[in-house]
């Protein structure tokens, strides 16, 4: 299960990287980045998964006393919670910048923005 989720995550990262490298359209590149972002999150979550254990929430099913034997690793989940929120902020920023670029040049093609080329 962990391997399956991890393979899916790595695949998503590769798909995202392929999309970001081959697409010329800025909006498509942003979508590619968000796909890669999801892949990274999936890989981190998969690292925390442990077979036969349950979510790190203590209740009637998981007593605090035997939590060490019953729950999966909570740290990757806390990390991904952070990563998702920051991902939203980054995506919103990228979209805002692309909007401004389009307003200036009337183009979404990365080839039309050559200021940083030597």
């Amino acid at each position: 299960m962990a391997h399956f989720a991890m393979a899916t995550g790595f695949l998503l990262i590769l798909i995202g990287a392929w999309g970001a490298l081959t697409n010329r359209n800025l909006l498509r590149m942003i979508i590619a980045f968000t796909i890669a972002d999801s892949g990274v999150n999936l890989v981190i979550i998969a690292v925390g998964y442990m077979h036969g254990r349950t979510a790190p929430i203590l209740d009637s099913a998981v007593a605090a006393a035997d939590a060490v034997q019953r729950i999966i690793d909570p740290v990757p989940q806390a990390l991904v919670l952070t990563a998702i929120v920051i991902g939203v902020g980054v995506t919103a920023l990228m979209l805002a910048y692309v909007y401004r670029l389009y307003e200036k040049r009337r183009s979404l093609d990365i080839g039309d923005f050559t200021e940083l080329k030597g």
Partner: peptide, 18 residues
């Protein structure tokens, strides 16, 4: 993770460890 699993309930009283 072991530290969090063992100490969260007693120290902080939160049911959701995350």
């Amino acid at each position: 993770a072991r530290y969090y699993a063992e100490h969260t309930a007693a120290d902080l009283g939160a049911a959701n460890i995350v």
